[in-house]
Design a protein around this nucleic acid. Sequence first.
DNA 1: GGGCATTTAGTTGCGCACAATTTAATTGCG
DNA 2: CGCAATTAAATTGTGCGCAACTAAATGCCC
Lengths: 185, 185
Amino acid sequence: MTPRPNPGPAPEPAVATSPEPAAVPVPDPAGTPPPGSTLGMLRLDQHVCFSLQSASRAFNGLYRVLLKDLGLTYPQYLVMLVLWEHGTLPVRKLGEHLRLDSGTLSPLLKRLEAAGLVHRERSARDERSVEVRPTEEGLALRERALDIPRRIAASTGIGLDEIQDLKARLDHLTTALDTAAANEA
Amino acid sequence: MTPRPNPGPAPEPAVATSPEPAAVPVPDPAGTPPPGSTLGMLRLDQHVCFSLQSASRAFNGLYRVLLKDLGLTYPQYLVMLVLWEHGTLPVRKLGEHLRLDSGTLSPLLKRLEAAGLVHRERSARDERSVEVRPTEEGLALRERALDIPRRIAASTGIGLDEIQDLKARLDHLTTALDTAAANEA
DNA sequence: GGGCATTTAGTTGCGCACAATTTAATTGCG
DNA sequence: CGCAATTAAATTGTGCGCAACTAAATGCCC
């Protein structure tokens, strides 16, 4: 009932580690390890991946604010972007554009359909495939989204050319990481 | 029961939109809109945010492979990084380092505790606070993580200096986006 | 010192990402 | 043709991110 974790019966079996944690059990036997060293590379502030994830989440936060009016989440917005650009697409193609599989897309599309923004229909040519088509309402939403990219761009505080450069580097990085992950598997 | 969506009773009420979707309901009245135009900015390939998110997810995928041995997820690994670097920390401080709140950290830490890697104990000085301390097992895991940054770095396919430059840009971007989101609210 | 605002974690609920599995349709190959 | 392999989507289950809320402890101010 209570949100507290510990006042109950068996909360502190813990592990038979150190009998009494004096003060700082771990860090800095001789100060912060240098960035280039093996130990130093485990420092959080050395991790691009974290900066990357932080930036992505910051984007997400700004989109969340801007998309509130439209009633869309950020992933749903990306789906609508693809549909606005390409029109009706099967789920698989949608997933290729967005790097998402049916496990993510199926429930998301169900929500978009419930919101009246898309229509799903099994393909007549290939009954395995489901065609996702933006409804009139979904198409109309595009007008209300028109100024979002501009507002986002203005918020980044960097120029369009630097954005393009950044994008190119990131896409290159993504390719390299995907390749590595496939080879490590 | 069946995974199919539509053969059931009421799957196709849809919306009274277009009577018959001819072929391509949307795109390109006059070809692809140019990148700089208002319409063109809604193109997915114009969105840094998507490249950013893709790169972040690609990182995540590679980490997933490399961390499998250690039994850690990527977010759990980040938590351990902070604990290895700073030793025992209250949940709040942990969250400041990682940009996470208790809603995310509480269950994650519970899982780390169940795995025997951390110990949680309410602070004696301030009973509101919970101190998160790496166990001996948690500390020992650091040795097994030592070569992960090197393997990741090797997989990025870019130099350490460019990594640093990228990181700096991303951190700057994150700050700008956070500011914008706060002001739009 | 009493009472109220603030702070800290935890919980609940929702949506997304992803692995693994299931079902059905299609393809391919003998 | 018949049957195995492949493909498409959905489902299930787990974990993360975040908003909203709750409970408890502390700080503060009169």
